[in-house]
Design a protein around this nucleic acid. Structure first.
Length: 845
RNA sequence: GCCCCCAUAGCCCAAUCGGCAGAGGCAGCCGACUUAAAAUCGGUCCAGUCAGGGUUCGAGUCCCUGUGGGGGCACCA
């Protein structure tokens, strides 16, 4: 089918006279007509003053800013179309709305493109940004473009660096020399979060380990608060995001228990283990320390050292993908030392294994093989003893090979014997440990500190200078930003060190403290640092003197809605929450939670599958826009279903959306009453539909059921059409009222069509700022309602009654209904349930 | 393995509190307009809510079990 035909751009249209054009819907002509008008009017520029002074109530509509990879695609279209419904609704409701847009413009793809094309990463980055910005404008999203920012601009990353230094001052940024995830393909370290199933999240290569000196943010200091504050978000954030964050933080309660190790040189050393089951302490038949934790190498007996070193070397070689296989048999090595169990006094052997993680808990565990499957597997592999201390009535784990973790009665457990309750068991044993000074209650988190160093060029330089005598010295604030040296093409090829290390003129500087020759830190920051505070910068994007203007930021924050992909459920959202809390502690921010509510859109798929180049099933946004126009595509995305559901484009009908828009648009041409005609004397039936629709739409938008708003608008269009053709006629003022309501409702989703209707109705632009029509409450009440009369739950009659009928009257009327009498067939009435005015249910004896 | 979410017509989806299962759209079918077709307009068919059990006067909605699908965590002691 001819594309221009579908979008209403027929050959006939082009030949028509001006007069005729006005009766033909032409999506592309409307886009060309209205875009420059909006550019001129700037109707969505947020007024800081009105909000700062409290003159107007604010709403902050935030959508996750994109990475500039090529042009916009269906996913961008969906998220912004949904988001725009909310932002435009708030404007109509009279709020001062801030709806900013920017770009998360540091990152690896630009660097890879620069190497490929022998150019500067900025070329790719800013070229794509310009393309996307133009597309967003054409897509009619109500962004306030005066707040546009890019994280790769020195004016922005200057403040990213400043924040890093403030975090360091507070002890929240620190260096650690430790094994890190290393992607051999991208030649860079990866955060734990970027490792998925042992592979690099980006390129899929198997991740290995490397020892590097890295910067970390101490997010673990905020683990408890990050967890606790989720409770307050549970009602306005999607369940799965809250759950994912809880899982990620991974709080567990247990105890620290001290075991005394007896080393080969006859010295003793206390090692603390973390356990969630201190009540099983009597069943601890050996100890295991993480092979790579340092402790193992320190305590290993001389005659076991060779075997240990061999094992450690083998462990280090194994990639995470091997380590994470659950089927993998347990391996380990006896360290040749013993430890004393603090409650039983028993001597138990100490082993090293890779199944104990160095960076969780204390890196050492007490092994209770009878009641922990991992320990049992290890014990059976190594021939270590198994002792049951809780009798659950199941087969003894020693013979079954299945550890029991349920409740039962304690056996062989000293003071615990006879108890059957796990909580009581834990309390009893911990009390004893605490009184004897050999243990304490303890809480542990799965959450690790945030590794932020990256050995890449296209990122925010870490503002630190390494001096031999002074150590890591912060770059003085007045020397910020530390800008990136000019590097391009082959300069950026991965060499195992950061590309910045090869920029000698840039690297070699004098130490700001002692003046001696020193070197800049050559790593750049994880781009999640850039995106952890951009929503704060939007509030005063051009302030050259401070990270943000606290007064303005506190006036706008928190974001009242944050719309974006669920793929950021953990990382970005957790980091941004962390930043907000630190900034609050710094006294710069009043709120401790940055995003009051959240909406996660689904993804756009095609024919049941994710769109991808390899599958060849991609749907081009550009082609869809050319074929159906902006409004029809936006309407399709919003109408498809609940915002959080995935959209299968193959199930959608943009042609149907276009047809509806044309129907709605044509209504405007049938209104013959003058602009400003009051609707009071208009047709009541139509007015009721209009007012009920507006009333309902408001609630539906607030609960994010945008697809239903569209359906209600369709009903209103249908009712108006009927009124014009076979009812009160186009001259009735109720018709004008209805069509104006349609234009206003449509402006949320189909701004071009709505604007054109608004003009045809005799108004000046823009409909987007026309205001939400006042709903006449008296038109919401029905004068007659249909009451259903049931007998034993089955409908046996209907009554037309007044909405304020009394229960007694309704019951009488219901019992008198002939259909009901027939159904009762003379039976005695046992009970009558009356729900005036809608339902009566009669229960016969 | 543990935790969370979902399942309504051929398809996409509605159904504030437990109260007539159907608002809207797509597709289909019939009709009007047309020489004809497209477009447009009007009309219309279609499920008893994944399965089984429970609570209730009454269950798509609440509870339990199972099936199917989606997601999170996973050698985290």
């Amino acid at each position: 089918m001819c594309r221009c035909h579908r979008a209403g751009l027929t050959r006939e249209t082009r030949r028509m006279s001006t007069e005729q054009i006005e009766t033909t819907y032409d999506a592309h002509a409307m886009e060309a007509k209205w875009l420059p008008v909006w550019e001129e009017l700037q109707p969505f520029r947020a007024d800081d003053e009105a909000v700062r002074t409290g003159e107007k109530q604010k709403r902050y509509a935030l959508t996750m800013f994109p990475y500039p990879s090529g042009d916009l695609h269906m996913g961008h279209a969906e998220v912004t179309a949904l988001h725009d419904v909310i932002a435009r609704y708030w404007w109509l409701r009279g709020f001062e709305v801030m709806n900013p847009m920017g770009w998360d413009s540091f990152g690896l793809p630009a660097e890879n493109a620069a190497i490929r094309n022998d150019e500067h990463p900025a070329t790719y980055t800013y070229g794509n940004i310009d393309t996307q910005a133009a597309s967003f404008k054409k897509f009619g999203i109500s962004f306030d473009w005066s707040r546009r920012l890019h994280t790769s601009d020195p004016e922005y990353y200057r403040w990213t660096q400043w924040l890093f230094l403030k975090f360091a001052e507070r002890g929240l940024a620190y260096q650690k020399y430790s094994p890190v995830n290393w992607c051999p393909n991208d030649q860079t370290v990866l955060a734990n979060e970027q490792v998925v199933d042992g592979r690099c999240e980006r390129c899929g290569a198997e991740v290995t380990k490397r020892e590097l000196n890295q910067w970390y943010f101490k997010i673990t200091d905020y683990a408890q608060e990050l967890l606790d504050d989720l409770d307050g978000l549970a009602s306005t954030w999607p369940d799965r995001v809250v759950t994912a964050q809880r899982n990620w933080i991974g709080r567990s309660e247990g105890a620290h228990v001290d075991f005394t190790l007896h080393l080969a040189d006859r010295s003793d050393r206390v090692v603390t283990v973390y356990t969630t089951r201190p009540d099983t302490l009597y069943g601890a038949t050996f100890m295991v320390v993480a092979a790579d934790a340092g402790l193992a190498a320190e305590i290993v007996a001389p005659e076991r050292r060779e075997a240990f070193e061999a094992y450690l070397a083998q462990t280090r070689k194994a990639s995470d993908i091997d380590r994470m296989s659950t089927e993998r048999p347990k391996t380990g090595v006896d360290l040749g030392v013993t430890a004393t169990n603090p409650v039983s006094g028993e001597q138990v052997p100490v082993w090293a294994s890779d199944y104990v993680l160095a960076d969780y808990g204390t890196g050492a565990i007490m092994a209770v093989p009878a009641h922990d499957q991992r320990d049992l597997d290890f014990a059976r592999a190594m021939g270590l003893p198994v002792r049951r201390v809780i009798d659950t009535g199941e087969e003894n784990p020693e013979t079954s090979g299945v550890a029991t973790t349920g409740d039962g009665s304690y056996v062989s457990s000293g003071v615990l014997d006879g108890l059957t309750d796990k909580q009581a068991g834990i309390a009893t044993i911990v009390d004893r440990l605490e009184s004897e000074g050999t243990g304490t209650r303890a809480v542990n988190f799965r959450l690790r500190d945030w590794l932020l160093s990256r050995q890449r060029y296209w990122g925010c330089p870490i503002p630190i200078i390494h001096c031999e005598s002074c150590g890591a010295v912060p770059v003085p604030e007045d020397q910020l930003p530390v800008t990136l040296p000019d590097m391009r093409g082959a300069d950026l090829k991965p060499k195992g060190v950061s590309p910045l290390a090869t920029a000698t003129d840039w690297v070699n500087v004098d130490c700001p403290r002692c003046g001696a020759a020193a070197k800049r830190d050559t790593d750049t920051m994880d781009t999640f640092v850039d995106s952890s505070w951009y929503f704060l910068r939007y509030c005063s994007p051009n302030d050259g003197t401070q990270v943000f203007d606290p007064e303005l930021t506190n006036a706008w924050m928190p974001a009242d809605i944050y719309v974006g992909g669920v793929e950021h459920a953990v990382l970005h959202l957790l980091y941004a929450r962390f930043f907000a809390k630190v900034l609050a502690d710094m006294g710069l921010l009043e709120v401790r939670e940055p995003f009051a509510a959240q909406l996660n859109q689904g993804v756009v798929i095609n024919e049941g599958k994710k769109m991808s180049k390899s599958l060849g099933n991609g749907v081009s946004l550009g082609e869809q826009l050319a074929e159906f126009g902006v409004d029809a595509v936006r309407l399709t995305l919003v109408f498809a279903g609940p915002p959080e559901d995935d959209i299968d484009w193959a199930d959608m009908s943009p042609a149907g959306s276009l047809r509806f828009l044309q129907r709605a648009w044509r209504l405007a041409g049938d209104v013959t009453s003058a602009v400003g005609t009051p609707a009071d004397q208009g047709d009541t039936a139509l007015r009721k539909v209009t007012h009920r629709t507006l009333h309902e739409a408001a609630g539906l938008i607030e609960s994010h059921r945008f697809n239903v708003v569209v359906a209600r608008t369709m009903e209103l269009v249908n009712a108006t059409r009927k009124a014009i053709d076979s009812g009160c006629g186009g001259a009735d003022p109720a018709v004008r009222e209805a069509v104006e309501a349609v234009a206003i409702l449509l402006s949320l989703v189909a701004p071009y069509t709505a604007e054109d209707m608004w003009e045809r109705l005799g108004h000046a632009p823009t409909v987007a700022r026309a205001g939400w029509p006042e709903v006449d409450e008296s038109l919401l009440v029905e004068d007659v309602v249909t009451c259903v009369v049931q007998v034993k739950g089955k409908v046996r009659g209907r009554l037309e009654v007044s909405p304020d009928i009394s229960e007694a009257d309704l019951q009488a009327a219901a019992l008198a209904d002939p259909g009901v009498q027939r159904a009762l067939n003379g039976a005695q009435v046992r009970k009558v349930i009356v729900r005036a005015p809608k339902l009566v249910n009669i229960v016969p004896a």
